[in-house]
Amino acid sequence: MTYIDTHAHIFSPEFDQDREEMVQRAKAAGISQIYMPNIDAASIEPMLALEEKHAWCHSMLGLHPCSVKEDFREVLSLMESWLAKRPFKGIGEAGLDLYWDKSLIELQKEALKIQCGWAKILQIPIILHTRNAFGETLEIIQAQQDGKLKGIFHCFSGTVAEAQAVIDAGFLLGIGGVATFKNGGLTPVLEEIDLHHLVLETDSPYLAPVPWRGKRNEPAYLPMVAQRIAEIKSIPVEEVAAVTTATALNLFA
């Protein structure tokens, strides 16, 4: 069995003390590919350095909504220059976040629209962060969707109706450690939504699955997410691994 972690920040400082050991644990756990979304200008170089060392760890490029400040156009200009230099597997982590600060929502929206444009021009997926802003994010994606936009609603934690709206918009659902939480709220979604609309992710170093909840997350824990999905859907974990891997490969092809 092999798995693909479609969302892991393994270049982040949380892994500075044991990054190589963490990568080897991921391999041992059957993780065949890891997709790394950066978050700001400072995270580009560490991400690319990790990719250079481990070719199965793939770089994506984007501006996280919590990193959108008054100078966001300058940061996006820098990122655009990187996109012209070399290929990236996706755009992101982009999106909207109204949890911490609502004052910059219009700037976040503009940044998201620009990044949607990149994804369409380059024909690569966009990875969406949405926190306390699902409706606003979906509205932009629906408006931007012209048949050329694809991607993942990362760390999906919404309702069955919201999941169906994501699918109708041509996007996949990123399922991670929250699926294993007792009160995570994802069981109805996982029961109802076809497996072919799901991809696996860890969001390392965040949102570790049970039994590591509250500790640092890492890609080696991804099989626990797959196992929980298998239990909820009453299917073999081998089927979860095979289908989600095929879906991820198709998205990032």
Results as ranks from 00 to 15, higher is better:
residue 234 S to M: 05
residue 181 F to E: 02
residue 201 E to H: 12
residue 159 T to R: 02
residue 79 M to W: 01
residue 203 D to T: 11
residue 87 P to W: 04
residue 16 D to N: 15
residue 139 E to A: 15
residue 144 Q to D: 04
residue 90 G to R: 07
residue 18 D to H: 01
residue 3 Y to W: 09
residue 95 G to F: 05
residue 207 L to D: 14
residue 175 I to M: 08
residue 155 C to R: 06
residue 182 K to T: 10
residue 94 A to H: 13
residue 220 A to M: 00
residue 191 E to H: 02
residue 251 L to D: 08
residue 218 E to Q: 07
residue 69 K to R: 06
residue 75 V to C: 13
residue 241 A to M: 03
residue 90 G to T: 07
residue 185 G to W: 06
residue 126 I to H: 10
residue 217 N to W: 01
residue 145 Q to W: 01
residue 166 V to C: 15
residue 9 H to Y: 05
residue 67 S to T: 06
residue 114 I to R: 06
residue 56 W to Q: 01
residue 161 A to P: 08
residue 136 E to R: 01
residue 156 F to A: 06
residue 189 V to R: 07
residue 61 L to Y: 12
residue 86 R to V: 01
residue 26 A to K: 00
residue 166 V to Y: 13
residue 90 G to I: 01
residue 248 A to E: 04
residue 58 H to L: 05
residue 117 G to E: 09
residue 224 M to Q: 08
residue 49 A to H: 11
residue 46 P to E: 02
residue 45 E to R: 04
residue 189 V to C: 11
residue 42 A to T: 11
residue 203 D to K: 00
residue 19 R to W: 01
residue 61 L to D: 11
residue 161 A to R: 09
residue 233 K to M: 02
residue 196 H to W: 00
residue 39 I to D: 09
residue 8 A to G: 15
residue 220 A to N: 04
residue 208 A to S: 08
residue 205 P to R: 00
residue 214 G to L: 06
residue 14 E to Y: 03
residue 167 I to N: 11
residue 141 I to M: 08
residue 233 K to P: 05
residue 198 L to D: 11
residue 136 E to V: 00
residue 24 Q to E: 02
residue 79 M to C: 05
residue 76 L to W: 03
residue 109 K to W: 06
residue 208 A to I: 00
residue 108 Q to R: 07
residue 218 E to T: 04
residue 78 L to K: 13
residue 96 L to T: 08
residue 231 E to A: 06
residue 251 L to I: 03
residue 51 E to K: 05
residue 234 S to G: 14
residue 109 K to P: 09
residue 39 I to T: 15
residue 99 Y to G: 09
residue 165 A to C: 10
residue 38 N to Q: 03
residue 217 N to M: 00
residue 114 I to A: 14
residue 91 I to Y: 12
residue 150 K to Q: 15
residue 99 Y to K: 06
residue 19 R to M: 03
residue 29 A to C: 09
residue 83 L to Y: 11
residue 81 S to I: 00
residue 228 R to K: 14
residue 91 I to M: 12
residue 91 I to P: 14
residue 165 A to R: 05
residue 100 W to E: 04
residue 237 V to C: 14
residue 3 Y to Q: 02
residue 148 K to W: 02
residue 103 S to M: 03
residue 35 Y to C: 10
residue 185 G to D: 08
residue 175 I to N: 10
residue 81 S to M: 02
residue 54 H to E: 13
residue 70 E to A: 15
residue 202 T to A: 13
residue 195 L to F: 03
residue 155 C to K: 04
residue 104 L to V: 08
